[in-house]
Amino acid sequence: MSAVLAVERLSKAFGGVQAVQGVSFALGEGELLAMIGPNGAGKTTCFNMVNGQLAPDSGSVRIGGVDTVGRPPREIWRMGVGRTFQITATFASMTVRENVQMALISHRRRLASLWTRAASLYRDEADRLLERVGIREQAERACSVLAYGDLKRVELAVALANEPRLLLMDEPTAGMAPKERITLMELVGEIVRERRIAVLYTEHDMDVVFGHADRVIVLDRGRLIASGTGDEVRDNPEVRQVYLGSRGRA
């Protein structure tokens, strides 16, 4: 099986801070991979290098076997990579439905159209996506008035709009109540199985991590310190040290 995403010896420094250092991992079709690590471990930086927002200092990123380093996010998106952000990025002056329609319009390359009404394009398709993530009834509301957890769902619907084969989710359940987190991750699991999408996600809630991921990788200060199944990682002494803080981190 060829990997949907293969990352090799990826590194990135900001000034003096080595945010990511020689990180390698791979991800196959239909697989849910959780990336965990304390704050500042370099998770978001990894995501940004995978989707093209940041250029790595060294290392390679291959998506479906194609090296994507140096391509802008919009091109990588067209290769079938959806993304949700740690701090949600939605179009605040548009309704929930319009946010999804925007992604569909871009997917179908209708952006340069000057005369059709955007609000009537791909409406049913957008509604089906909203239905899928459970916020169909909020379709007409402005994104600016949504609860944070619901915004995360909008982002998910937007990320699914181009039928991605790889989904990157940076803390998809942040800002949700514990029960809602479980429901959302179950939903993601279902969608992944249904569409055979590969998912890379980060998470701080350990229940969400161990209950839903097929595999887990652990980052600390930019380095990959462990990888394996949930149980293997949980029992890894180095991981326990990082999370229990017995190393006396500031």
């Binding site: 989707n51 802008p72 919009r74 998106w77 990025a89 005369w115 394009l121």
Partner: peptide, 26 residues
């Protein structure tokens, strides 16, 4: 009319969140 078209919407999208635009191919 253009403001209500995909082009007009995309411009508003760019104002609201350039980051998201880039992440959905705009």
């Amino acid at each position: 009319r253009i403001l209500f078209s995909p082009f007009g919407y995309a411009l508003r999208a760019g104002r609201d969140s350039p980051l998201r635009c880039d992440a959905i191919g705009i």
